[in-house]
Design a binder for these strands. Structure first.
Lengths: 341, 341
DNA sequence: TTGTAAGCGTTATCAT
DNA sequence: ATGATAACGCTTACAA
């Protein structure tokens, strides 16, 4: 371990600890010469402040906590990338915890972060989470929380999201404009907001375009192993309905499962059935046919969320009023082969 | 913030802080009744130890630092997953930093972790890193380091790796046994050990099977945007050589670039050219044709590395001798469509 | 401009 | 079985 401490520098220079501390932190009431001497000695002695002592004294840790459902997911690792980047810019470290989509684990993880006294928490809810008291408790204790991607509207905090409903609406409208008439939707489970919103966008787009909503065209994909879900449900769909000409999938992964099945049974994409994904993973450019999808800006979401959180941390520290913001990042249709005609 | 502290409990119970502390930590020299009272009161008052004070006092942080080149990569997010899992098992938190494959950034990040006084560091080297003094300095100061995946043999610490050379050797031998005669290699840049080892394995397999090594069949992929590298070099290769019948790529991503190009120009895989990848990303099952590859156990690598690191932390703490280990995890050929005949 | 001293919340030593 | 007290290394009123 590094052992130089303030007293060592003070002793070496024959001055007081206070003076050393102040000099190091650039206080103005220290003479330039003393300051210079201290700085030099600190450098020579390879001084590193004991962050635990600093934290104890200042009651902050310059650390952010992040809870995500899983790291092994292109979208979340992009988000993470954005968070790490902005945290680094602003001098914060980042502790990462996974909820594995489990409510109980999420509760445990948030508790760990509170114990660790992180200055703020970024989180995307697990699919199971439908009670938010664990989050509200943290906020009440003055640790700011910023929710991203899978959020709960009801929780009083800042949020960084995309407009899932509008994005889905746009996707389905796009399909309708392209002439597709019977559009199925592979939806996610009933709890997460974004699953609900994408479904609602789908429904609304149909209605606004005079296409009656048919519940039998909606397939539930809630097994977490998205890929298989898409595959299996594509099979079911083609057995149930012979006249479906397009599928709007809630994620690229499900879309890829669909494509895989359709390819296997030689159903031509997009000639017989078009497929529309959601997220714009790297993978969607690699599959054939290349997948039309919604670009969801993971990096930006992470970056913005971290930025807002750090802003709020500063505001709280300076006893300024904190005004929660909800930032909605734009999405974009990326047209590729799976829907062209 | 949570405000209950030891003094609060002591005051509420009319006993001393010492007794409370000891009771909470299960010291045997506290009466059962006192202990029970303390526990109950702590529970009631929702006591959470101030981890900064604990850290300052005990001089440990129960935190691991991780430095990886990038999070947005299937392999590294799998490793991360393994690390997070084992860290959680053993009561450690994890701080993650990215080097973005830059030596300078890597140096800065390791310095940050030391300042943060993490109990140990897990790292995979950046592609640029060819000097290891920053790592050795940390080890010398008694903070254990475990290197994984992209390691430096020369650094005196524990390591978790696969046998890249053998895996590559096996891959190429497999191709030769399948009857492929003219096998190209798309290699990585010259610095990272695994890039070198995979190349050496390739070369050795040729030699052991009486196939003369031809340097013109080795293409360098060092642009970090692997995918394009594979695509571009596949193009070059097919222009340079008309008789190559197989390509062994250093990563799946490069292999996918190759497949993409070959698909575009209608070269049949594996009939005209076989493609062999490395890593077994999820993506390799999704592309067509599905990619034959080497399975590289990311999760296990992370899990083991974390496990060894935590072992070493304990050993150091108890002043036991630390014996560095190098764990070699097995790899496996995953045969799929891109090489079958 | 510099220094004294208190205090952050915990743990550990040594008495009692 | 319990408690008084010092110590961890730093920051910050306040005093000089």
């Amino acid at each position: 371990m590094n052992d130089t401490k303030l007293t060592d520098i003070a002793f070496a220079l024959g001055i007081s600890v206070t003076t050393v501390s102040k000099a190091l932190k650039g206080y103005t009431d220290i003479s330039k010469t003393t300051r210079a001497k201290v700085l030099e000695m600190a450098e020579n002695m390879n001084y590193r402040p004991n962050i635990n002592a600093v934290n104890l004294r200042t009651n902050e840790t310059k650390t952010l906590g992040v809870i995500i459902p899983t790291t092994v997911h292109h979208f979340f690792s992009s988000v993470l990338n954005g968070i790490l980047e902005e945290a680094e810019n602003r001098g914060y470290l980042v502790i990462i915890l996974q909820s594995n989509e489990k409510y109980e684990l999420e509760k445990k993880q948030i508790e760990l972060l509170v114990q660790k006294r992180v200055d703020g928490i970024l989180m995307s809810l697990s699919n199971e989470t439908d009670d938010f008291s664990h989050i509200e408790a943290v906020i009440r204790k003055n640790t700011p929380v910023v929710l991203f991607d899978k959020i709960a509207k009801i929780v009083d905090c800042s949020k960084v999201v995309i407009n899932d409903r509008k994005a889905a609406y746009d996707a389905v409208t796009y399909l309708i404009r392209k002439g597709y008439k019977k559009i199925a939707h592979f939806r996610g489970s009933y709890v997460p907001q974004n699953s609900i919103d994408r479904f609602l966008g789908y429904k609304k787009a149909l209605e606004d375009n005079g296409i009656p909503y048919d519940p039998s065209l909606v397939y539930l994909c809630d097994h977490n192993t998205d890929f298989e879900d898409g595959y299996e449900n594509a099979k079911k769909l083609t057995e149930d309905h012979t006249d479906v000409d397009a599928i709007f999938a809630i994620t690229d992964l499900i879309a890829i499962g669909i494509i895989k099945y359709l390819n296997e049974v030689n159903i031509k994409i997009p000639e017989q059935i078009a497929v529309f994904g959601f997220s714009n993973w790297f993978m969607s450019t690699v599959i054939s046919p290349k997948l039309t999808t919604i670009d969801q800006p993971g990096y930006d979401i992470g970056f913005q969320a971290a930025s807002i959180l750090i802003d709020e941390i500063s505001q709280i520290k300076e006893h300024l009023p904190v005004i929660h913001r909800t930032v909605e990042l734009p999405t974009e249709i990326i047209e590729r082969e799976s829907t062209r005609r």
